[in-house]
Amino acid sequence: MRLRPPRLFLGRTAYRRRRLAEATRLVPVLFAALVLIPPIWLPQHFSYARGAVWLAVAWALAIAATAALHRALGRPSAEDEDDA
C-alpha cells in the first residue's frame, strides 16, 4: 500500500484549497441545521407558507454556497490528493 506522508506545510494555493475543502464540509452541517431544527422545534410555525419560504431560502443559500465553493476549488491538483 502506498500511504504518502502528510506534508507538514503547504504552499499558498494548496493551503487555500485545504481551507476551501474544509468549508465545503461546513455547508451540509449548516444546511441540515437550518432544515431540521426550526421545523422540529416549532412545527406549528413552519408548517405553512413561512416554512415553505424558510426552506426555499435556506436551500437556495446552500446551493449558492456549494456552487461558489466548488467553483473556487477548481480541478483537483496533484498536491491535494490526500485531503480526505
Binding site: A21, V29, F31, A62
Partner: peptide
C-alpha cells in the same frame, strides 16, 4: 439536498 451539499467530501 443535504447529502449533495457535502458532495465534496
Amino acid at each position: 439536498g443535504i447529502v449533495f451539499s457535502g458532495a465534496w467530501w
